[in-house]
Simulated scan of single mutants.
Amino acid sequence: MRTQCEPGDGRLDPSLSAIMSERRQLINLAYRLLGSLTDAEDVVQEAYTRWYAMSPRQRESIASPGGWLTKVATHICLDQLRSARARRESYVGEWIPEPLPDRAEWVAGRRGGATADPADRVTLDESVDMAFLVVLESMTPAERVAFILHDVFRYSFAEVAEIVGRSPAACRQLASSARRRIRAADAPARPAARRAAVVRDFKHAWEAKDIEALIGLLDPDATALADGGGLVNAAPHPVVGAEEIARYLVAVTGMVPAQTILERTVNGRPGLVVQHGGVTTSVMAFEIAGDRIKRCWAVRNPEKLRPWTTC
């Protein structure tokens, strides 16, 4: 597992431009740690707030501002991850990581309607695949941080230990445990073109309300989850089984007959976007095993769909 994002190293000029050049790196890190772009933006903003709260002399004494910002952002993420279980207990229905559009489709709408800052865009690779992010949710906060920093962002275990305040040996063990979770959940990779073809066939079958075709495209034990956050209608519990999912989708289409289904890239993989009246109402990501859909995640919470406002 590798990403094009590389940790800041060496001594940086503590000027505004040099400090702000770390922003994209921090956004990428925080999104992978939290599964939420909105929360990632808040974490990075808080890290910069703490940087500028120091005196000029304190800032000048820091050899690697990028490393300092990474450490602070990681600590903030750790605090959020540790409190996430309590916060999720009050969350209505299923919680699914916030979906990301393809870079070309990244639009206004997240922050007061302003055009998205390129520095806020997350590098789309296998480490933001929705299935991958869901597995990360099953990890302990320490496992998740050690794994992301070492396996995704290529920090050495000595660097990880310094950031998280544990020994290199402990961080190595945490990352190893996280890898076992990833391997246990991994589905065999399919060529991108084949994944896109399966999603396209699924779209056509859904539009045609062809229950038999939908069943044929779904694994018999497939699972579908929807995240409405209590703000919009969504299945409160997982829908399990190919026939159950197919009938549920056709029933939903019957209730909203004027919806449009579009093929889009979701977290770097083929997915679907559902619109009604030109407004994005659902973003769907898929895990495909063989030639069938094994898992489907539908994010309907409008607070998680801001980057998709006009996609």
Rank of each mutant, 00 (worst) to 15 (best):
M1I: 12
Q4F: 09
E6K: 14
G8S: 11
D9C: 05
S15C: 08
L16W: 12
E22W: 05
I27P: 05
T49E: 04
Y52P: 00
A53K: 07
R57T: 07
Q58Y: 03
P65K: 11
G66T: 08
G66Q: 08
L69F: 06
L69G: 06
T70R: 15
K71N: 09
I76Q: 00
R87C: 00
E89Y: 04
S90W: 06
S90C: 03
G93P: 09
W95A: 02
W95G: 00
E98D: 10
A104T: 14
W106L: 15
W106E: 15
R110E: 13
R111Y: 12
R111F: 14
A119D: 12
D120K: 12
T123C: 07
E126A: 10
S127H: 13
L136G: 09
A146D: 09
F147E: 01
D151E: 14
V152G: 07
F153D: 00
S156M: 00
A161C: 01
G165S: 08
A170K: 02
Q173T: 03
L174D: 05
S176T: 07
A178G: 02
R179C: 05
R183F: 12
R183A: 11
A184M: 06
A184P: 03
A196D: 00
R200I: 00
W206G: 06
I211C: 08
I211Q: 10
D219Q: 13
A222H: 11
A222Y: 11
A226H: 05
G228Q: 08
A235G: 03
E243W: 03
E244D: 10
I245K: 03
A246D: 09
A246W: 06
R247L: 09
L249I: 08
A251C: 03
M255G: 05
P257Q: 04
A258W: 05
I288A: 02
R292F: 01
C296A: 00
E303R: 09
